[in-house]
């Protein structure tokens, strides 16, 4: 599903050029559950951003679902993000003035889906994540775990093929973190490909495949032996 070939990404920080990614190649099959681990600054977030089309590689090629997306325009990339990819962030990134339901509805609104269908899909999604009674609450009236579940509902409302999670439990206590991980694993159980960035080794061990990064390179990949299409 994801085919990254010799990806390079260089940032300029002040006068220095920082190699965030060096010669990274990664193949992820549909339905995989994969964690990217490594110390901070190892390039794991940059890799996730490139996979999520929020960032473009300087060199190398990226094919998503057999489509070369390296040269897509801003509009086309936005459309891919809208329909194929769901994001889960460490800091949830809910819009504070909107209710839980409205936050979940946002991708549907942007995709131009009619209100009646939006309402129905949002209600189903919130129900599934046990948030039905929180639909009209604003983010500041929700606990951390509830906020992240709202964010997960938002990430999956468009039924994406791929969910990218960047430290999804990084800002949660243990119990709610466990809750969130269970939810994410349930998504994977439904066939959604999940790529998760974390520096929590315990969390990393739960995934079927682990990728270790260091200084912009992949230093270990437990699933590299897999037959990846």
């Amino acid at each position: 599903m994801i085919h990254l070939e010799v990806i390079e990404r260089v940032f300029q920080v002040g006068d220095e050029w920082v190699h965030a990614l060096r010669q990274v190649s990664l193949h992820v099959a549909r339905g995989e559950y994969l964690s990217i681990m490594g110390p901070s600054g190892s390039g794991k977030s940059t890799l996730l951003n490139i996979i999520g089309l929020l960032d473009r590689p300087d060199k190398g090629s990226y094919r998503l679902e057999d489509r070369d997306i390296t040269d897509l325009s801003d509009r086309q990339q936005a459309a891919l993000r809208r329909h194929k990819i769901g994001f889960i962030f460490q800091f949830f990134h809910l819009i504070p003035r909107l209710t839980a339901a409205e936050n979940v509805e946002l991708p549907l609104t942007l995709a131009g889906i009619v209100p009646a269908e939006r309402k129905q899909r949002v209600a189903v999604a919130l129900e599934r994540l046990g948030l039905a009674d929180r639909a009209r609450h604003r983010p500041d009236q929700l606990s951390g775990g509830q906020r992240q579940r709202v964010a997960i509902a938002r990430a999956t409302i468009m039924r994406p093929a791929l969910v990218l999670a960047d430290e999804p439990t990084g800002n949660l206590d243990r119990a709610s973190g466990q809750d969130v991980i269970d939810t994410i694993e349930a998504l994977n159980g439904e066939g959604i490909t999940v790529v998760m960035v974390t520096h929590d080794p315990e969390l990393g061990r739960r995934t079927r495949r682990q990728v270790q990064m260091m200084d912009g390179r992949i230093v270990q990949d437990t699933g590299a032996a897999h037959d990846t299409r």
Binding site: D74, R81, F87, H93, I95
Partner: peptide, 14 residues
């Protein structure tokens, strides 16, 4: 943050 999020969930610049 909101603008970043809008982009992430697929809103083009326009």
């Amino acid at each position: 943050g909101e603008i970043g999020l809008l982009k992430a969930v697929g809103a083009p610049g326009g």
